[in-house]
Computed example of a mutant assay.
Amino acid sequence: MPDTSTAIAEIRLLNSGYSREARSLLYQAYRHEPTFAYIFEAERSGYEQRVRATVRELVKQHFFQKLPAIGLFVNDRLIGIALIAPPQRRLGITESWAWQLRMWLSTGVRGTRRYLDYHHAVLACLPSESVHVLPLLGIHPQFQGKHYGEQLLEAVHNWCAEDPHSAGVVLDTGNSRYLEFYKRQGYEEIGEVAIGPILEHVFFHPNPQPLHAATA
Rank of each mutant, 00 (worst) to 15 (best):
M1Q: 08
P2L: 10
P2V: 06
D3A: 01
S5L: 02
I8P: 01
A9N: 06
E10W: 08
E10L: 11
I11Q: 04
R12G: 03
S16W: 07
S19Q: 14
S19T: 14
E21W: 10
R23I: 14
S24L: 09
Q28R: 12
Q28N: 14
E33M: 12
P34A: 08
T35E: 08
I39E: 02
E41G: 02
G46F: 09
G46S: 07
Q49F: 14
V51Q: 03
T54Y: 13
V55R: 07
E57S: 11
V59K: 07
Q61L: 08
H62Q: 15
F63P: 01
F63I: 07
F64H: 14
K66N: 05
K66V: 02
L67T: 07
P68D: 13
P68R: 05
P68S: 08
I70P: 00
G71M: 09
G71P: 05
L72T: 00
F73M: 05
N75R: 10
N75M: 03
I79M: 06
I81M: 12
A82S: 15
A85F: 12
P86Y: 05
P87M: 05
E95I: 01
S96M: 10
A98E: 05
A98F: 09
W99S: 03
W99K: 06
W99D: 03
Q100R: 15
L101Y: 10
L101V: 04
R102C: 07
R102A: 12
M103D: 00
W104Q: 11
W104I: 06
L105D: 13
S106W: 05
T107Y: 05
R110C: 05
G111L: 07
T112W: 09
R113C: 02
Y115C: 00
L116M: 08
D117Q: 15
D117G: 11
H119W: 15
A121F: 10
C125V: 10
P127V: 11
P127L: 07
S128K: 08
V131I: 11
V131C: 06
V131Y: 01
V131A: 02
L134A: 02
L134T: 02
P135R: 08
P135H: 06
L137Y: 06
G138F: 04
Q142I: 10
F143W: 09
F143Y: 14
Q151S: 06
L152G: 00
A155C: 03
V156M: 01
H157M: 08
W159S: 00
W159N: 00
E162D: 04
E162W: 01
S166F: 02
A167I: 03
V169G: 00
V169A: 01
V170W: 06
L171I: 10
T173A: 14
T173Q: 13
S176N: 14
R177H: 14
R177I: 04
R177Y: 13
Y178G: 02
Y178S: 15
F181I: 15
Y182S: 05
K183F: 03
K183M: 07
R184L: 03
R184H: 11
G186L: 11
G186H: 11
E188G: 11
E189D: 05
I190K: 12
G191D: 10
E192F: 06
I195W: 02
I198P: 00
I198T: 10
L199Y: 11
H201C: 10
V202D: 08
F203S: 03
H205Q: 07
N207L: 10
N207D: 06
P210N: 07
L211A: 15
L211K: 13
L211M: 12
